[in-house]
Nucleic acid binder design. Structure first.
Lengths: 225, 225, 225, 225
DNA sequence: TATGAATGAGCATTCATTCAT
DNA sequence: TATGAATGAATGCTCATTCAT
């Protein structure tokens, strides 16, 4: 059980050893977060006890407190990992080659929705629920995920607007309405609406078309002046 | 709903007295729910104690249990009141005179968003958070609000589709995407996005146009085949 | 519902009216005690609420407090009624005609055990349980039932001893051991021993013979000097 | 039962440590049960709070729940200890050398009554009271103590009957009547009868004689046919 | 006298967190 | 660093009792 790191003479303090330390710590943190995700997803945040998580992780209760300050820090940690796995910027930049906005948007939505489906929806349910209600978590989420995303997205929208690829609409609202729609649909799904899951694969195309073209039939009589 | 006590010249036992009883009970329930809304909105559901609510309502702890089975029943009660104040069906039917879909949608969104702003957003935060995480509440919400609303809305969409006022898109998704967008925007707002509140009054028009016309510039090259 | 006693002009205050009052009160008390016995027997003393009893009696909670000081007074009341229905003295005096001690004892045990079987055992369970643990009840029981019974029984035993119908044994213990045996058997029965109920009808004869003759085989070798 | 730690020269993981663990756990359980006995005996079961017991044991409330599932489990634990201290089988077998049934019975009663007096009567009061009223406890008591005892005792009685040491009476009743008498006398004592305590030391002899010989004077006229 | 709504003290139990080993 | 026993504050809920009507 004891690891005699010091026996390794060529390791200089503060360099490799620390790196190993960090990796060990990161590994433990992930082990704990994995367990937390699993249990939170099943039982929800409040009903889950530290003991539940410790048992799931195969460690002692107290050990969790060596890696996380308190129970809420676990949600923070989960949020962080979700964010990392997100890599929105990367998502976007990878899509930069897409020839036009429609393909771009479709590909992006497909990617995002695939990620959502891959991760267990259940953990979103818990995280969103807690974000809504926990100020600290909310502010953190806003600063680390929300704002940066919008700052980045705004550039794209501005560029598209400049290039007259999209109409000169209220950009701030436009770029908020789109993720809002995705978020809203996910919540509708979580709440129990079966229609969304049934049409999950149709969503990227549908949403893209709706966002870009609308669902209204354009005619001169109905068209707004 | 109106009770004209005076019309009843011949008083039968168990009628007026019961009616007064019912009113008293309803009044107490509302008194308690008002207090609950206030405290929940401030502290959230879980951190709020029954004592907090009783204190706010100016009554004893135990009294709450004469009117609500348990703490969760308070959320149910709040949800019910929100739902009643909603009267979605009425909203829609009142709008039936609107000349075209655009005015209709715009008026409807204006109405909904006004309601949302009138009610304290804070209580939505709490209610949604709890719905996400509480199965009983979720199922109840789904049955009493979600499903009925969509059943009703579907008729409208079907009618519009039949009249070729809207494109022959996936109706189920379309009619889910719109409230999803509203819900998503509210959540973004709750989370702390200031842009939405700033543009609140522009939302109905913007959303209507986006839904009906899209934000993409239509041209023959970009248009999908 | 209103009873206009005053219309009855010939009733003089303090005499007949009071007597009716008393009867009414007694009737109400019995109504309440009947309900209490029923519910206590089913649920036990502590798990039974005043509301349970009020519901069973078809009256309001508060009404019970017009007739009994508190919940414990109900047990006292039940005990009193059990005692009254007992009428041990009467039992004994009725049996005075019995020709000999054996018939007397047998008849008495038969009578007592029949009473026990007639009453629901369940209420004994509750009353004894509470007596064991509640000092006030215990002392009351001791004074009102226990002691008077033994005082009376002692006379019989003394008389029998004087007449050399029973051996010159420790009378105090003898006359305590007999009801002890009955009590103990009842408790064994209550606890779940099926043998006692099965042999219930054989008990009076068996106990009488055992008490008077013993179960040992008398022979000169074994006989104590 | 004896653990000779030193005999184990080759220490296997999970053996000694676990054994120490078990001893610590057993010690804590006993510490808690001691406190519980003390407080229950003074205040009774229901009026005693977990806090009372914790305070008496010098530990925190929560600690009790690390060793007992709930308050009732404490009574179970007490019952178990009483049972262990009982060792009825041992009692009997130790007496097997007794030359005759009279000495045997006398010795047995003396032993049982001594045990009862050694333990605090008060705790019997509480345990019996609770057994009478608590189904779970009652069934457990019946299975673990009542039935096994009678199964064992029946053998003795059968043997005595076969050897014509006792009369061919209803054995099932006979062997129930004897402990019933002891139990009944204890309850009479608990209820407040001073005579029993005063004659405590005379009880074994008196009861034995009464059971074996009866208290009736045998004469040919009175003798039942 | 009957009612039953209001009361609020009281309590078992939970569980996040600590800390000695 | 890992452990898990100990902690004790915190709280939902019950229910005997009161009292205005």
């Amino acid at each position: 059980m004891d690891i005699h790191l010091n026996e390794c003479s060529f390791i200089r303090r503060g360099t490799i050893k620390d790196s190993i330390q960090e990796q060990l710590i990161a590994a433990r943190r992930n082990q704990i977060l994995d367990a937390a995700v699993k249990v939170f997803a099943t039982k929800g945040f409040h009903p889950t006890t530290i003991k539940d998580i410790a048992r799931e992780a195969g460690i002692a209760d107290g050990t969790i407190y060596n890696y996380f300050e308190n129970k809420m820090a676990l949600i923070l940690g989960i949020l962080d990992r979700l964010n990392e796995s997100d890599q929105r910027a990367k998502d976007f930049s990878l899509l930069n080659d897409e020839v036009n906005i429609r393909s771009f948007m479709k590909a992006y939505l497909r990617h995002r929705l695939a990620l959502l489906k891959a991760d267990n929806f259940e953990i979103f349910r818990v995280v969103i629920s807690e974000i809504l209600v926990n100020k600290e978590l909310r502010e953190l989420y806003y600063q680390k995920i929300f704002e940066p995303t919008f700052v980045m997205v705004e550039q794209y929208f501005q560029q598209w607007a400049d290039q007259h690829i999209i109409k000169p609409v209220n950009l701030k609202l436009a770029m908020r309405a789109i993720p809002a729609m995705v978020l809203g649909l996910i919540i509708e799904h979580i709440i129990g609406d079966t229609a969304i899951e049934a049409e999950w694969d149709a969503l990227p195309e549908f949403l893209t078309d709706m966002i870009l073209d609308g669902i209204g039939v354009t005619n001169h009589d109905e068209e707004k002046p």
